[in-house]
Design a protein around this nucleic acid. Structure first.
Lengths: 227, 227
DNA sequence: TTTAAATGTTACCTAAATGTTATTTGTTAT
DNA sequence: ATAACAAATAACATTTAGGTAACATTTAAA
């Protein structure tokens, strides 16, 4: 799962906060959804199923604690990480927050850099669980995601990042044809626009290193990895 | 390691508790260090490196849960046992506490005999792990976490704190690539924001002292330790 | 068979990432 | 206070991944 597949629900009654926090997180490539009160938050959480929810404690309609409890009761959102926004002084709300099922809290005033790194740290936990199969074996090929390296017939091959990611993608479903669009989206990110020969060049480099016949071209469509 | 060499950090905002618990444990021969709030606790933990920390959940300045998380992020204190003190009713803190990396909890009101035997039981576990955990050998390299020193090919090398922590982190999973974000989070802590060249400079110093080829750069990702 | 579109190939360029060193700033012990 | 060291930064150097352009080759449909 890449960054741009991650949705973050941001809930605060102050538009300024939504603005600044949302801006900083979207710069990092996350999808941002916002809500200005607890009721709206629960509704949007249910619909969008974000991976992370940042909840202000003090809000009209329904406060953060109550919203958190509601959200925790939605089966689909069991794995969602919830963190509170709280003024430094209100340490009471932190206790109540954990009680309601929060995973963490962030204190105001918010420093964007701190916030971003905290969010990254929280999401890392999610990511680590996801890539549980960090070592994948396909025929003669061993792909070690943790060490960012590839072992082919016992020989270690170090691949540059994009090549590694491309191989990683194609080999995640051997035999499946990945469309060029799909490859661009997953490896390059669809905000980035690259020239028409970029994928080919990378495929060529992989063919050089891994073996010509591991990568089959399907003309007019894309590429597939075959073991 | 004899009882006399074991340090226990006791953290509670009520002097009465510190007094009675401290007295009972010191009778058993343990060294007792005390703190009355989370901030002080983290500071003393960092400095004294106790084997066991008994943390009250409810405290001013920084609560036990937060303190626990901070402590868990200090590489040197990875193996430290942390247990919470909690009122019987507050069972939420137990959940949040385990989440934050606690090993056990003790409920108030405290019965000295129960406490002492619980402490003994916890420290027994430490003793079993001690040999394998506090001294790590990787190839020509021996890392002694307790003494804060490193032995390379029989020669002792004294590393400054950050360098030691960085080495400690990287060597905890040889071969694994640690992302720059992750390194910042684990070694510097994610409240601190440091400049973009800080990690590199420390890596360079390690390369100077430990050996150039022990640290591999993975461009665009991070660094890994290889034996 | 033609031929236009898609893909392959190569060499080259550059921005971004990392390396390096000197200097400033912070900390600790005496 | 100050010496001694640690840690961070700034400024500059170096490296390389990754992208592109230009051209070659292949493929499949007409």
């Amino acid at each position: 799962m890449s960054k741009r597949d991650i949705k973050i629900l941001l809930v605060d009654d102050e538009p300024d906060i939504l603005e600044i926090v949302g801006y900083n997180l979207s710069l990092e490539g996350y999808q941002i959804i916002t809500a200005t009160n607890g009721v709206e938050a629960v509704k949007k959480a249910k619909k969008e199923k974000p991976q992370l929810i940042i909840l202000d404690v003090m809000m009209p309609e329904m406060d953060g604690i109550e919203a958190c409890e509601h959200i925790r009761n939605i089966p689909d959102l069991k794995e969602t990480i919830i963190t509170f926004l709280t003024a430094r002084s209100e340490d009471y709300s932190q206790v109540a927050g954990f009680d309601a099922g929060a995973d963490d809290y962030i204190t105001k005033p918010i420093k964007p850099k701190v916030l971003v790194s905290k969010v990254k740290a929280l999401l890392r936990r999610l990511k680590e669980e996801e890539v549980s199969e960090s070592i994948v074996k396909i025929g003669q090929l061993i792909i070690d995601h943790e060490a960012y390296k590839v072992i082919l017939k016992g020989k270690e091959i170090v691949l540059p990042r994009k090549e590694f990611e491309l191989l990683s993608l194609l080999s995640s479903k051997p035999g499946k044809v990945f469309k060029r669009d799909e490859i661009l989206d997953k490896v390059w990110g669809n905000e980035v626009v690259v020239g028409g020969r970029t994928i080919d060049v990378h495929i060529r480099k992989l063919r050089e290193k891994i073996g010509d016949d591991s990568f089959k071209t399907v003309k007019g469509v894309g590429y597939k990895f075959v073991s």
